[in-house]
């Protein structure tokens, strides 16, 4: 109400010199407003406030609930859970290291691929493509983000895995096999590598859309200036566009990373579902989100459920940290500009 009244007072056209806003003056204006209006104003304000507060309450409840669910596993294992490799439900032994490793490997791998692809697409849509072409390609790329993860999982199993098994893996292994990262041939094809490809499909549209909007904010004069000085298109991008948008690109990538660590279903189908750590991206592994999705519905003991909650808590902490980082980076970037 306060703001409404002050804007009201400010905007009343005053031909006579404005009266000083005294308490009595304020009262007079208030009285002009009908009582119902005043009540309705307050009611709407409270209602809106309730909406905003609810968002916060839910966030707090999520943190509380996840920590509460993890308390049994936490009291059993403490922080040692994070560094422990064994995950054996029949023996009721749980450790999270293999899943944390799997999550990080797949998310970082997907981040590398989708940063290259996403920023390229952002550049194409904002600076290269004719407007008409961009108006068609842009929404199509965004459509990729709308594909449900369970459909991506299905496509991953029946199209991606055979392709990786027969073509990608042998090629990469023969050329880069000595690095151990592209290790020995696996007969199944379920692997973190497949998960990386599926996650890339999910993250690329996010980075592409964010960076496209970012590149469009680079002042035209700067770009034209560089080209007038004789820079080629690529030199203009490398010398002007990328440096001025550096922070924004970083923020977009961090957001993409946050999306990649949280994906459960599509990853669960292709990563292999084996709690193991391998240097090779072609050997089956598992990720935190994926193991929660696959084991929580059929958990055989309270400790297992609690251990899954523990993983969810780690995931939550990682997610919140990446989000806050992205926000901080992008705020710093927008303040600089």
């Amino acid at each position: 109400m306060g703001r409404g009244l002050s804007t009201l007072l400010r905007r009343v056209p005053t031909l006579a010199p404005p009266k000083p806003i005294s308490a009595a003056n304020k009262r007079a204006v208030l009285d002009q407003l009908n009582v119902t209006d005043r009540r309705a104003n307050r009611a709407l304000r409270l209602l809106a406030l309730a909406g905003g507060t609810l968002v916060f309450l839910v966030l707090i409840a999520i943190v509380y609930q996840v920590i509460d669910g993890a308390s049994l596993a936490f009291s059993t294992y403490g922080f040692g859970f994070i560094g422990h490799k064994t995950w054996n439900p029949p023996a009721n032994q749980y450790g999270g290291l293999t899943f944390i490793y799997g999550t990080l490997v797949t998310a970082v791998g997907a981040l590398v691929l989708s940063t290259i692809l996403g920023v390229s697409i952002g550049l194409f849509l904002s600076l290269m493509a004719p407007r008409r072409v961009a108006a068609v390609i842009g929404p199509l790329v965004e459509m990729l983000a709308a594909v449900p993860s369970v459909v991506l999982g299905l496509i991953g199993i029946y199209l991606l895995l055979p392709f990786i098994r027969s073509d990608v893996e042998p090629a990469l292994h023969s050329v880069l096999g000595f690095t151990q990262i592209f290790g020995p041939a696996q007969p199944v094809g379920n692997s973190p590598f497949a998960a990386i490809l599926v996650l890339t499909i999910m993250v690329v549209p996010i980075i592409a859309a964010l960076t496209r909007d970012l590149f469009l904010t680079v002042p035209r004069e700067l770009r034209d200036g560089a080209e007038a000085l004789g820079a080629t298109r690529w030199e203009m991008i490398r010398g002007v566009v990328l440096p001025t948008t550096q922070t924004g690109i970083t923020a977009a990538c961090v957001l993409g990373f946050g999306r990649a660590i949280g994906e459960a279903i599509a990853v669960a189908f292709v990563i292999g579902g084996v709690p193991a750590m391998h240097l090779s991206v072609f050997e089956s592994g598992n990720s935190m989100a994926a193991v929660i999705a696959t084991e929580a519905p059929s958990a055989i003991s309270n400790l297992q459920t609690s251990a899954l909650f523990y993983l969810a808590a780690i995931l939550l902490v990682m997610g919140i940290t990446t989000n806050l980082t992205a926000q901080r980076i992008s705020r710093r970037g927008s303040r600089m500009r």
Binding site: L59, A61, I62, V66, D68, A289, L315, N323, L324
Partner: peptide, 24 residues
Amino acid sequence: VIQTGIEQMAGLPTIVIGIFIFGL
């Protein structure tokens, strides 16, 4: 502050939302 809250909510891993409602 509230905007930060919304961004956080948007960035939550969906499986964490699932297990939250499961526990709650």
